[in-house]
Nucleic acid binder design. Structure first.
Lengths: 197, 197
DNA sequence: CCTTACTTTGTAATTTGATTACAAAGTAGA
DNA sequence: TCTACTTTGTAATCAAATTACAAAGTAAGG
């Protein structure tokens, strides 16, 4: 994959909806070319094939999620605050790129099969979360869990499935859905299901 | 899709590993035929195409998860107990069918794009969980959350991503991984991250 | 045993798309 | 202006999925 110019990258997002709807396997390269306005030959000049186009889009998306989440987490505040901000940030980026997100769920499998993307996923979600959980124990705002790694993974699953399901379900109401989901997810994760006396 | 005889179904599971490894898109029909021991022509006699083979396997898997989870949930006990059992049951079925599970994560997108499978997912996971959450409020062992639907979705996400990631990561150590994951997931979901005074 | 309907499977097309090859412009900097 | 790289159209080439078709096989009913 050659270095992709910003202008080209922007055009490619025009095919995200298509890919999200049909999946990369069923989206014909010709359709991707039409939807994005990039000629087939140009696509093949930059990418090795269809898969790589998807990989580029997802990598780009994950990068921006990682960036936003990272920023949210490094603002000054307690760990619990920063956790909330991180969840909000993640949900916000998902909200801003619903199509790419849908493509991500849709081809999550492919994503995890591609080593670079797996790494990107890891650094976009798992690592920041795990670090945050550890910091929360230090500043006393979060409980010490036995296995921060698995807890981070669980939190990741919670946010991701909840967020993505919403994006998939109703792209139109995404905004309000995201807000409510942030609420529900934070509440569940922070307070747990067992009643507090 | 014709009614699939049990013997054929059993053979098909022989291709689950292949499909999990490469994804349905990259698994050639000829390879599926070899791996399962079912001739290509027979595959096309029963299924409309590759996709339908995957759909059948996933549907079958989801059905058994739904069955086990349902059974766990209807045993006598408090809601909190039954929640634990349900998580264990789900993890157990995943453990018993690692390949099919990996295929499920891998092609989760396809799964959610196929209406029947989306429905199966819904009744295998969401519905039982949501009901359980409501019952827990009644018997006092679970806290009332504002939005049981979203909470159920979150719980689903937690279990699924945590469980499936493990299956993907290390098929060999799946057993111990599952045990630890049940622990971590239950702990997180029940106690939450905020410290209890 | 014979007939019928369905199942099983092999082989030979057919079709669909992805990918590659190639060449003609276009463009920007040395 | 020369060179290197980019952009894109067109015409192959290739790989696989899918379909067509026919020859067996099988089981139930009469």
């Amino acid at each position: 994959m050659r270095n992709v110019p910003a202008k080209l990258a922007a055009k490619l997002y025009g095919a995200a909806d298509l890919i999200a709807d049909k999946g990369i396997a069923d989206a014909k390269i010709e359709e991707i070319a039409d939807a994005s306005g990039v000629p087939i030959a140009t696509l093949y000049y930059y990418f090795r094939g269809k898969e790589e186009i998807l990989a580029f889009l997802l990598g780009d998306l994950l990068e921006s999620i990682a960036g936003e989440v990272g920023a949210a987490m490094s603002k000054p505040g307690t760990a619990i605050d920063r956790l909330k901000w991180a969840v909000e940030a993640q949900m916000r980026v998902m909200l801003e790129n619903p199509a790419a997100c849908r493509a991500l769920v849709g081809d999550l499998g492919r994503a995890t099969r591609l080593p670079e993307l797996a790494t990107a996923l890891e650094s976009a979600f798992h690592q920041p979360l795990e670090q945050l959980l550890r910091e929360g124990v230090e500043d006393g705002t979060l409980r010490a869990v036995q296995d921060p790694g698995k807890a981070a993974l669980s939190v990741f699953g919670t946010i991701t499935i909840a967020g993505l399901t919403g994006t998939v379900a109703q792209p139109e109401h995404a905004a309000s859905y995201a807000q409510e989901t942030v609420q529900a997810v934070c509440d569940l994760l922070l307070e747990g299901l067992r009643p507090r006396e």
